[in-house]
Design a protein around this nucleic acid. Structure first.
Length: 472
RNA sequence: GGUCCUAUCGUCUAAUGGUUAGGACGGCUUUCUUUCAAGAAGCAAACCCGGGUUCGAUUCCCGGUAGGACCGCCA
């Protein structure tokens, strides 16, 4: 059974990078008929926050990645929060300690920091080979009472090569000397990340560890622990990172980095899902717009890119526009609720019909359609088409009013026909139609005048034209 | 500083030991058009550098260069 997991730490909102990692875990698991698991890494109780945990899991769900197991939905391998698993880890730490595969280290943080600094100064790889690595447990117990400051480290072998096969990067190899005696637990019941993951992955029977390439250097440590504990090795896949416009790891200074922010900006979950999938992966053909099902169907690790990909807002905007245009008006109306408060559903839908092809994100809506809710302020220069004189504008509007009043009771199709005929007589249709549209919308850019009239109604349109006339 | 990773249009990417190096976004042009979009048509735009292997390298190998990630008693 293929089992993949995402392990967010609940110290902030759902980050785009985390979401993308989750996405690849999800696609892979679903493609292989496996299970997608959410495990919360909240070792450091102070930093963690239930609110963030909920937000992260809901964010994943919003994107379409419902978890098969996790802290909120449960499962047979729980608990799914690291903070609730301290009892699970303890025996494994004790085991390593009693087998002399781990030891107590009594160096202070200050000493360690100095050691590292000196090593780097002398151009050496910063690595801690601890002097306490061979002391007996008895000695350690005595020292522990004397100093209460200690940490548990893994006793690393020297001169070994650690190799593993990565699904994305093929053979990777690391020198054990450069890893040193790395830390595995703060105290006997407080494991550190590298230790906790290894134990959890074993117990939760995680078959594939799919994560960002920033974890590559953690892998040899975890492999060492797996070996020492006699665990089963999962298969690894390290994904290329998502980069900001300057090619460094995507972070706050690059702008919006959380899924929430994109949601609030009016991006649809489908476009974000689709877009992230195409960052560092392709389906092997020219398709760009793919549904979740198609993405799952065509997913394969072999197609995952090795180099990082810039998060290009331009393309996201385009894709979001594509998705907006593919929505039914009813769906779009529902999605627009948070952005546009309109009491009448019918009215909202009519407006959306006009804007569907004009917006790239839902947040553009309020500004684009405000004229449907309040009369525009009159501005004579806005009414001017090319180099019409004030008098010409005036006579155009008078003509418009006249025609509109005459055809008050007519269907909009008829009105349009009449107006177009009249505009045709003027040679340049803009001389009649531009003042019409701009008087109705109060904007340089908007939907067409007849579409607007059909929504506003003839009475309101006459009123706006009269207002416009006043301003000249 | 050390280790590891990576390298095709501005961006996301495809393909290939011999191609006019393909697609998409963005840009530009044209078209449609009262405006803005959307639509249609088109244009410009890339194989990091050097050496080797080879009849032939963008492709394979080596070196350089550049960029990135990591180097916690965070995860």
């Amino acid at each position: 059974m293929i089992r993949t997991r995402i392990a967010p730490s609940p110290t902030g909102n759902l980050h785009i990078g985390t979401a993308r990692t989750a996405l690849f875990n999800y696609l892979f698991a679903k493609k292989m008929g496996g299970r997608f698991i959410v495990r919360i890494e909240d070792t450091d109780i102070e930093r963690s926050n239930k609110k963030f945990e909920k937000n992260i899991i809901e964010g994943l769900k919003w994107l379409g990645m419902g978890e098969d197991e996790g802290p909120l939905v449960g499962g047979d391998y729980g608990p799914y929060r690291q903070s609730e698993r301290t009892k699970t880890y303890k025996p494994y730490i004790e085991k390593l300690l009693s087998e002399s595969k781990a030891f107590y280290c009594f160096h202070s943080e200050k000493e360690l920091a100095e050691e590292k600094e000196n090593l780097m100064k002398s151009k050496k790889h910063p690595v801690h080979l601890c002097e306490y690595r061979n002391i007996s447990l008895e000695e350690a117990n005595i020292l522990r009472e004397a100093k209460n400051d200690y940490i548990i480290r893994f006793k690393n072998h020297v001169g070994r090569k650690i190799t593993f096969n990565d699904l994305v990067r093929k053979d990777l190899s690391f020198d054990s000397d450069l890893i040193g005696d790395f830390s595995i637990a703060k105290r006997i019941d407080v494991p550190l990340y590298n230790f906790a993951v290894v134990v959890d992955d074993e117990i939760m029977e995680i078959s594939h560890v799919i994560r960002g390439e920033d974890h590559i250097s953690n892998t040899p440590k975890q492999l060492l622990l797996i070996e020492a504990l006699g665990f089963k090795k999962p298969t690894y896949a390290h994904l290329p990172l998502i980069l900001g416009s300057d090619r460094s790891k995507l972070s706050k200074r690059h702008g919006a980095t959380s899924v929430d922010e994109y949601k609030d900006l009016g991006y649809l979950s489908e476009s974000l899902f689709n877009f992230m999938a195409l960052l560092g992966w392709n389906p092997g053909d020219d398709r760009e717009i793919l549904s979740k099902e198609e993405l799952i169907e065509s997913f394969s690790m072999e197609k995952v890119q090795k180099s990082g990909a810039i998060f290009d807002l331009n393309k996201l905007d385009w894709m979001n526009g594509e998705y907006i245009r593919r929505k039914s008006i009813a769906e779009l109306a529902k999605l627009s609720q948070p952005f546009l408060k309109v009491k009448s559903k019918k009215y909202l839908e009519k407006i959306l019909e006009l804007e569907q092809s004009r917006i790239k994100k839902l947040s553009e809506l309020p500004e684009k359609v405000d004229y449907f809710f309040k009369e525009p302020s009159a501005d004579k220069d806005l009414l001017r088409w090319k180099n019409m004189t004030d008098e010409e504008i005036k006579s155009s509007i008078k003509k418009l009013l006249e025609l509109l009043k005459e055809n008050k009771e007519q269907d909009i199709k008829i009105i349009e026909k009449v107006f177009l005929e009249e505009a045709g007589k003027m040679g340049d249709r803009g001389r009649l139609l531009w003042p019409l549209r701009s008087a109705l919308s109060g904007k340089k850019a908007s939907a067409g005048p007849f579409e607007i009239i059909s929504i506003l109604g003839v009475e309101q349109s006459i009123k706006r034209l009269e207002n416009a006339l006043q301003s000249i």
